[in-house]
Nucleic acid binder design. Structure first.
Length: 871
RNA sequence: GGGCGAUUAGCUCAGUUGGUUAGAGCGUCUGGUUUACACCCAGAAGGCCAAUGGUUCGAAUCCAUUAUCGCCCACCA
């Protein structure tokens, strides 16, 4: 009984249940097999806060392609999913929710607030899990992890303690980026810059006149810096001056520092060490005192006299008024500068000094073979232990790493890993350990207060590749680490990738991953960043899945993209791939209609290859297997997908299936080709291929099938060429018909004269059917048919009698045009072949090729000229 | 200020180590109910590969300069 499936593929009908079937089959969970090399990907944790967006969807599609491919190849393939607590981001989100009810986190208190956050995270985790499944991601849910799981938290504490003991973590009173809104420090990378139109104030400053954009910081000035070689100020270096200020005179010391640009402004800079990174560094170099005047709320401190309690903005207004009164303000200019803002909430950053925990990136450690964290992290990329794709990001990475400053890891927010540090309540002694100490080593007191701060979220995500695998003793860790590929967007190269390298090489002595594949960012139709504020161009992957099916969405996110380059995504693109999915469905439908129950049992073997068309399709397929495999291995997913797509649609559907409608139908090859194509397509479009696989009555699911291997026995180069000639003949006749508007229903006749006449004779049936001929003469040589249109292919003459339809004038024109372009072509080849340089330098193979081209072209030229004469 | 990327058909993009008469999809045009598919089939039109110069027998591809657009980094107060 022949099988008939629905007329169009209905993704919704199959996807969810199929996913469940895969998951329940255990196919997602790899078994440790020490005789095999594993393939591992750690899924970058999507923020526990958000909805799945196209960026995630692309990441999932690319990673799933790799995992499904390796799984089919037989590698124990682990794709570990998980979520991140996303400290600041999550806390902000919950605070926003609370704010709607008029509550702050302080109203609730730490414990109650954390309870709220946990509830929120639990909910969003559920959402993101469902959405990851929607994308068809074949990740191992049995190994799912969350950064705040007990095991992972333990690793975080252990690594912190270890680093402290190795002297790589210290507590220091240093300048940090402070977000007054989040009420927390931020690392250098968590600061964004925004252009802003500001004012430059020139102020009289004792013996100096100098420019500043922040006059209110004058209250914290302790020095004036000049370039050491600046003649104007050279004599003043080292001297102290009394500067008149709005709160009375204050003292500054003049220091010479190369950081000052003598060309800019007046060449003299006021130094506010507590509230500017540059100034802090200058102050450190010259032992200048640090005077903090702005507090953690962004308000002026008690040492600011009448300005105490004002915000910096308020203070600036007032102080300018006062300066003006005192005649200290010389002039005001417009000035554009970069304002630093918090990457999470957009508030402007207040640099200030604060007692915080830092990771020392410039200290040599035994554990790192006496290298620093920075040196080690540079080394593993330089020596190729880690390969970044595309490689141009090496430079970016090196530059960032070389200029990395000590990393402030303490945060004053509540959501996250508590810093494993305990202070003795009596003597204040610092104890660094995961568990609360039993008694103080300094004074034997037994009561302690834990450091109220939490760790930077990137501290824990830096450990992601191994904290998820039960490091250091777990079987999974020993087998699956280092991971094979880290796939993520280039926008988090610094935040995450670099820190994983830094943390993992230190903690485990291994690299976290061997390859880093950086994908580009998704843009909208106009090339702009996609954002919910532009709903016309913003695309929600879930809507698209609902409308076009997951397979279509996956393809549209993979094909056309190259690593590191941004990609535009819009609905028409997705619907285009939906058409392809439907094409897969319908061609399979056709094959199934031609196979009966028994045919489904046929197992392919090369003896079943019969016709020229069979050899051609099998050989071409063999080639596609070879090429797409190579492309996937080299991370060229788009190329692989595109090649399979092209082959499927044009060679398989448009030619082979059409040929199969005639005498040459070969069910075995039809089945073999389709099955192999389903395997090749499966990593890209897992759902539709698996559904069809089921229709083919397979025992094993496609997800667990093995990846096709190219077979040299299935390569038929000669037959490929000879089949190509048939296809060219059919196309030529079709073109002739179209030229003369021959109604498709009308059957015409043709004569073909060629030295290949024997081969052609064997293909008489498909040629006649595909070109819609009622009569066909095939001979080695023959006379031109009267009143016919002539088409010349290499060593093939085709005459199509079109009688009254032949328009002599039109035909003359066409022939002339063709002769002209042929002549140009020959000239071009001639210039190559007459060029001594070419003959001396080019490969012989290439020269021979050119000669053949010329011969063929000449041949055609002669025939066309003859044809023109006889017209 | 430094670094990186993009610039190829009307649109979106391929083009892997230099050698194809420069490709695809969408869109456009002309036809079309043929053993699956109109989410389809057959055919066509459409390109000085941003500009200039160089290397080479040979350049969309390598080098230099320029232009436009975009991104990243940076302590010019």
């Amino acid at each position: 009984m022949k099988k008939e499936i629905e007329k169009a593929y209905n993704a919704k009908k199959y996807e969810d249940s199929l996913y469940k079937k895969w998951e329940e089959s255990g196919a997602f969970s790899p078994k440790i097999d020490k005789s095999k090399k594993p393939f591992t990907i750690m899924m970058p944790p999507p923020n526990a806060t958000g909805q799945l967006h196209l960026g995630h969807a692309m990441m999932l599609a690319i990673e799933d392609i790799m995992i499904r491919y390796h799984r089919m190849k037989g590698d124990p393939s682990l794709w570990l999913p998980g979520t991140d607590h996303a400290a600041i981001a999550t806390q902000n989100k919950v605070e926003q929710e609370l704010a709607k009810k008029g509550i702050t986190r302080h109203d609730l208190g730490r414990e109650k607030f954390l309870k709220e956050v946990r509830a929120y995270v639990k909910n969003s985790q559920g959402t993101i899990r469902r959405q990851i499944r929607k994308m068809g991601s074949s990740c191992d849910w049995t190994r799912e992890r969350y950064t705040l799981d007990d095991g992972l938290s333990k690793v975080v504490e252990d690594v912190f303690v270890k680093m402290y003991k190795d002297g790589l973590i210290y507590r220091g009173d240093r300048i940090v980026n402070w977000c007054p809104r989040c009420h927390s420090t931020l690392s250098d990378d968590e600061v964004d810059y925004k252009s802003e139109n500001a004012k430059m104030y020139w102020i009289k400053y004792g013996p100096f006149v100098l420019a500043t954009t922040r006059p209110e910081t004058k209250l914290g000035d302790t020095a004036v810096a000049v370039h050491p070689k600046d003649k104007r100020y050279k004599e003043m270096i080292g001297k102290k001056y009394q500067i008149p200020g709005v709160l009375g005179d204050f003292e500054v010391i003049v220091v010479g520092d190369k950081a000052v640009d003598p060309e800019f402004g007046s060449g003299a800079v006021k130094v506010t060490p507590a509230h500017s990174f540059t100034d802090f560094e200058i102050a450190q170099r010259h032992n200048v005192p640090v005077k903090k005047i702005i507090d953690e709320d962004g308000k002026m401190m008690e040492n600011c006299g009448k300005y105490e309690g004002m915000t910096t903005a308020e203070c600036r207004k007032e102080i300018l008024k006062d300066m003006e009164k005192m005649g200290l303000l010389e002039k005001v200019e417009d000035y554009e500068h970069k304002l630093s803002v918090c990457y999470r909430c957009g508030s402007s950053i207040e640099p200030l000094t604060s007692k915080q925990w830092f990771v020392d990136v410039n200290k040599k450690a035994k554990r790192l073979n006496n290298k620093t964290l920075k040196e080690k992290s540079l080394e593993v990329v330089k020596d190729g232990s880690i390969k970044i794709i595309p490689s141009r990001f090496n430079k970016t990475y090196f530059h960032w790493m070389e200029n990395l400053r000590d990393w402030c890891v303490s945060r004053q927010i509540w959501w996250g890993h508590r810093i494993p540090v305990w202070y003795c309540k009596k003597c204040g002694e610092v104890h660094v350990s995961g568990d609360k100490p039993i008694k103080c080593s300094g004074c034997s007191h037994k009561e302690f207060k834990q450091d109220p701060d939490t760790l930077d979220t990137w501290f824990s995500s830096g450990l992601w590749t191994f904290s998820t695998l039960d490091w250091p003793n777990g079987e999974d860790y020993k087998y699956f680490h280092p991971t094979s590929v880290l796939e993520t967007g280039y926008d988090i190269l610094f935040f995450w990738v670099a820190r994983m390298i830094l943390m993992t090489t230190y903690a485990t002595g291994e690299v976290p991953f061997k390859n880093v594949y950086l994908h580009g960012l998704i843009r909208d139709k106009n090339g702009e960043k996609m954002s919910k504020s532009k709903p016309e161009t913003c695309i929600d992957p879930l809507d698209m899945i609902d409308k076009y099916g997951t397979d279509s969405v996956r393809l549209s996110l993979v094909i056309g993209g190259t690593p590191g380059n941004d990609m535009r995504v819009y609905e028409e693109k997705i619907s285009g791939y939906r058409n392809f999915i439907n094409k897969i469905w319908n061609s399979s439908r056709f094959v199934l209609m031609n196979l009966d129950e028994e045919d489904l049992q046929i197992e392919f073997n090369p003896k079943m290859i019969k016709s020229l068309a069979d050899k051609w399709i099998v050989s071409r397929l063999n080639e596609i297997i070879k090429e797409s495999t190579k492309d996937i291995e080299k991370h060229r997913f788009s190329d692989a997908g595109m090649k399979i797509y092209d082959f499927f649609w044009s060679e398989f559907c448009n030619w082979y299936l059409e040929i199969s409608k005639g005498d040459l139908q070969n069910k075995a090859i039809l089945k073999y080709t389709l099955e192999t194509l389903l395997k090749l397509l499966h990593p890209f479009t897992p759902f539709v291929t698996e559904v069809i696989w089921g229709e083919l009555k397979k025992e094993k699911m496609l997800i667990s099938e093995s990846w096709p291997k190219p077979d040299p026995k299935l390569a038929f180069a000669k037959e490929e060429k000879s089949m190509q000639r048939i296809l060219n003949i059919v196309s030529a006749i079709r073109r002739a018909r179209a030229d003369y508007n021959v109604p498709p229903g009308k059957q015409i006749s043709a004569a073909i004269y060629s030295k290949y006449h024997k081969d052609l004779e064997a293909q008489r049936e498909p040629i006649m059917r595909l070109a819609r001929l009622e009569e066909l003469e095939i001979k080695e040589k023959g006379k031109k048919l009267p009143k016919s249109k002539a088409v010349m292919l290499p060593h093939i003459e085709i005459y199509i009698p079109l009688e009254e339809m032949v328009d002599v004038e039109k035909e003359t024109l066409r022939l002339k045009k063709e002769i002209e372009s042929l002549k140009e072509y020959i000239e071009k080849i001639d210039s190559k072949l007459n060029n001594k340089g070419f003959l001396n330098n080019a490969k012989q193979e290439l020269i021979d090729q050119e000669k053949i081209k010329k011969e063929d072209a000449n041949n055609n030229l002669q025939k066309l000229e003859k044809e023109l004469k006889e017209l």
